[in-house]
């Protein structure tokens, strides 16, 4: 299998003098084309892990390998080109004064010729369905639209990995589903690998694999259906079990015949509607 990302024994603390490790030996790897989610409570080290992978902290112990190459201070700018990150706050990552300027920002940094930029700006905005907003200012966009622009800025750079650092947590349900749809579309279209840091278990449920973090360590690694089936563990980790999982469990104990895998709310509604008639 082709490993696009490998992380070995990451140890990190925010302050040198501090004796508390933010990360305490994190190891995992991701195969090309996979969609992996990291879930865990606030302060469990999810976002720190994501930022370390993108080389955004200078000092850490352990190894980060991107596409087989080990991340160092020398090659960080080159390796970073393979990664696109979408952060939590839609406003705080919008650099350009208009939509097109923002999409172009990353390309400007890479020194891409202007003709090529013009082409890619349109193409990327089309991919996230924001072409009509090309000359708009961020103040006139919704949170979900701003996040789609952020995604456009990333696909214009043709990365291999896209990291979502709680990218949907500040959006309303509509914005959230729009963004997730867009990510799924571009993942297939551009053959991307996705690493998603999230609080939203429904979101995590649609991934190939879930890593659960607690206190700077990965405590569990499983497929969504497997993980959510054992809801006792979830409570112990401090995460809410998705509503649909809870409901299914209750229905099962009451004698309903339901499949032993995780279903999203919509899927469950469909299934129940089917069963009822």
């Amino acid at each position: 299998m082709n490993k696009i990302l490998e992380v070995e024994n990451l140890v990190f603390k925010y302050e040198k003098e501090s004796d508390v490790n933010q990360l305490n030996g994190v190891s995992f790897s991701i195969t090309k084309g996979e969609w992996v989610s990291i879930i865990g409570q606030n302060g469990s080290g999810k976002s720190t892990t994501a930022r370390l992978i993108d080389g955004l902290f200078e000092e850490f112990e352990g190894i980060v390998k991107i596409d087989g190459e080990r991340l160092t201070a020398e090659n960080v700018w080159n390796l970073r080109r393979k990664i696109g990150m979408v952060f939590q706050n839609p406003d705080n990552q919008f650099v350009g004064a208009t939509v097109e300027d923002d999409v172009a920002f990353g390309m400007e940094n890479q020194g891409i010729p202007r003709e090529e930029m013009i082409k890619r700006v349109d193409e990327a905005l089309l991919a996230v369905n924001m072409l009509d907003f090309k000359t708009r200012e961020p103040a006139r966009l919704s949170g979900g639209q701003k996040q789609r622009v952020a995604v456009a800025g990333i696909i214009a750079l043709r990365p291999e990995i896209i990291i979502l650092d709680e990218s949907t947590s500040m959006l309303d349900p509509t914005g959230r589903s729009e963004i997730m749809r867009v990510i799924h579309e571009i993942k297939d279209k551009y053959h991307l690998t996705v690493l998603s840091i999230t609080h939203d278990l429904d979101e995590a449920a649609s991934s190939d694999r879930i890593l659960v973090m607690r206190a700077g360590e990965i405590i569990k690694e499983a497929a969504p259906s497997e993980l959510f089936a054992t809801s006792e563990d979830m409570v112990e980790i401090g995460l809410d079990v998705p509503f649909s999982s809870n409901l299914m469990k209750d229905l099962r104990t009451n004698g309903f015949d339901l499949p032993e895998k995780y279903l999203s709310e919509d899927e469950l509604v469909e299934l129940l509607a089917d069963k009822l008639g």
């Binding site: 930022r51 993108d54 955004l56 700018w77 970073r80 080109r81 990664i83 990150m85 952060f87 705080n92 990552q93 650099v95 097109e100 300027d101 172009a104 920002f105 990353g106 390309m107 400007e108 940094n109 890479q110 020194g111 891409i112 010729p113 202007r114 930029m117 013009i118 700006v121 800025g153 990333i154 750079l157």
Partner: peptide, 18 residues
């Protein structure tokens, strides 16, 4: 942080969209 993650490292070697 977002600017850095998008490869911003100062004005050298940058092209301009506008």
């Amino acid at each position: 942080v977002a600017m850095e993650s998008r490869g911003y490292q100062g004005g050298d070697g940058r092209t301009k969209y506008r």
